[in-house]
Design a protein around this nucleic acid. Structure first.
Lengths: 205, 205
DNA sequence: AGTATTGGAGAGTTCTACTATCTAAGTCAA
DNA sequence: TTGACTTAGATAGTAGAACTCTCCAATACT
């Protein structure tokens, strides 16, 4: 199919498709002449994925490219699946964040400290710092509640990683990490509303 | 104190403070003359909060203003606390999203369907749609796992709402909702790394 | 008296994610 | 074969967001 039909099938404007081609988010079509290229189903799928990442998950073009590069690249070792997603996603935090407090928390929760890279720990430390800097105090034990809930989530997710093919595993881990984030936050808000009604009664319409 | 010292104490440039004043994120100082105003501790605290919301939680100026307006306003009814945070946070989704599937899920989970506004339901429906549109399939039962974890989180949060003063309650709910989001996501990633190491062994450094 | 700072307003900058225009080279229907 | 339409590829332009800079008259310190 030609670019105009690709645009129709994906509901992405032609100019935007060209932009994604330039930005190397979308692989080029098969050139059939100097001014003609043909695109196929793989381009439609890819465009849907790109839009889900940019519009749905709110990623930038640059982060999206990093992520897609990771999904496309043949995973050499197979065990740094998460690295692909996490390195692209975790904001480049200044490494000067003190993560010893986080290490202590991980110990306390029984998490594998050595299995976690420092950037991820710095992200947690930064999030806690941000909360404190805002003048907000987490209630006693709340951090443990959060950790427990996220442990439950992550365990189920990792348990579900397909092992039949490396491609499937990367696809599952990388996309699952980022695409599910909006869902989790939306579910939390919904659960808050439900719990709030249970405790306080009436709720806004 | 004058604006230059406020800038020093908050590490926010003078020009940016002036910008926040123009955007009504920060309340004005007490004018002592035509070209002099004095700022106090409340301005320092407020600036820290603003930065936490914008830099930490990644909110836009407009959303931050809505949120702060909500925190500042005297809560008239006391029971639509969440509305203040959620209406500002939940992206204005096109109301054409079909939420009947979400209603069914809420029933299944035993959540109070009537205590949840349709925008929040639409956000969940939209998140699920986005995942599906990306060509990603949630493993069997994973949605229930997510719901359960978020129910645990939300219940603990709502249980901790202070009831001594309406101001404290609004502060807790509105800021807790948004400031904790980065923490939850960071914890999930850390938990994924820990669980991944437990299942697959080695991990990236 | 003279240097520095401030409030306030407006203009300018940078970045991101598109969107539009243009040209030469095709394609296709009559 | 003619003429309208489409396309690839390059370049330039746009809109919005979040600052950042410049200016000026009016103080404030020294």
């Amino acid at each position: 199919m030609r670019i105009s039909q690709l645009s129709r099938e994906s509901t992405v404007p032609v100019a935007t498709i060209k932009y994604y081609l330039r930005e190397r988010l979308l692989h080029e079509g098969q050139l059939t002449s100097a001014t003609q290229a043909s695109y196929d189903e793989s381009h439609v799928r890819r465009l849907r994925l790109i839009r889900a990442l940019i519009v749905g998950a709110g990623l930038s073009i640059a982060v999206t490219r990093d992520l897609l590069d990771g999904v496309d690249a043949p995973p050499e070792s197979g065990h740094d699946l998460l690295g692909i997603a996490h390195h692209a996603l975790i904001a480049p935090t200044a490494a000067d964040v003190d993560t010893t407090a986080v290490d202590a928390l991980l110990d306390q929760w029984g998490w594998d400290t050595h299995g976690c890279d420092s950037a991820a720990k710095a992200a947690v430390a930064g999030a806690i710092d941000g909360i404190r800097a805002a003048g907000f105090e987490l209630p006693e034990g709340m951090l443990d509640t959060y950790a427990g809930a996220m442990h439950t989530v992550a365990s189920a997710e990792i348990a579900g990683v397909p092992t039949d093919s490396a491609e499937a595993a990367v696809h599952y881990v990388v996309l699952g990490t980022v695409l599910v984030e909006p869902l989790l936050l939306a579910l939390r808000r919904l659960a808050q509303q439900s719990a709030s009604r249970a405790r306080f009664g009436a709720m806004p319409l």
